[in-house]
Design a protein around this nucleic acid. Sequence first.
DNA 1: TATTGTTATACTCTATAACTATA
DNA 2: TATAGTTATAGAGTATAACAATA
Lengths: 164, 164
Amino acid sequence: MSIGAEDDGPQPEEPWPPAAIADRLGFLLKHTQLRFVELLESALVPLEVDGREFAVLTLLAGEAPLSQQQAARRLRVDRTTMVAFVDGLESRGLVQRRPDRRDRRRNVVEVTAAGRESLRKAALVVEDAERRFLAPLGREGGEQLRTALRQLLSPAVAEQSVAD
Amino acid sequence: MSIGAEDDGPQPEEPWPPAAIADRLGFLLKHTQLRFVELLESALVPLEVDGREFAVLTLLAGEAPLSQQQAARRLRVDRTTMVAFVDGLESRGLVQRRPDRRDRRRNVVEVTAAGRESLRKAALVVEDAERRFLAPLGREGGEQLRTALRQLLSPAVAEQSVAD
DNA sequence: TATTGTTATACTCTATAACTATA
DNA sequence: TATAGTTATAGAGTATAACAATA
């Protein structure tokens, strides 16, 4: 623990975020996302679902019945990934596969009563985590951030950015 | 491609982002980050470095000489990950390991002249990518977003959030 | 011939454990 | 005894390829 014969002087204290990259958008987005996920997952530990499962449940409960691939496309995950999500949720009785009568290749995935109850509880935890995370920005700042991110994600923007 | 005997009616067009989760902060942060990384990496393809190497070079060039572990801690990556980064950059002559005279366990990692030149070119590409990505928010909106993200990442906030 | 769900497989990124040389 | 760098290894998370059932 002691310092050698030649002292380096006071340590520069490892500033964080490092000044040289603290303004790079990639760095800011990556670490903001990482930090929020940590906060969210630790808040969800006592519950039955994690953050990604919460998103799946929210999507499946919120719209007209969806097939696995429809859900996968809307969450921007691979269909093989969706198989694993539905496997996990179904094994805990939170969703149920039902063959689509009109197209028997498809499974319609329905959220069960237990699933809706888990979702309801998780939503409270998620909303609280978001509130705490955004608190430093004030109420207005938090909403501005959400609006800005939604703008960046809107499809029109996507086409335009890629097209350039 | 044709539709079966029983028509489902007009497809609901797979709205994106899906309304049910379009306001969830985790979803917004994740997909904004993903989309920016895609834009950035495709812009960096013609260059000698990718986005993560750009961050390493920027950090190493911007501050007093750093050891591998100091760099790793500041970028929040594992020291074993930093070994791989330095291996890759050194094999292309962009950085150079030099044993620290005062503590011979350490490698000081120096950016070479070639590394600084690659960094200079990459910085132009990165800044242009950021500008294009943030364009939909206007000049002021882009700066507001950066400021908000910086606020969420500042250490004081971290302690406070975790402590709650 | 194309699509849905599925499985097996591979690849990337990151983290853990153990080793060496230095302190 | 502890730390810096390294290697080998294992674990997420995700994507690709191939297959059966259905359209």
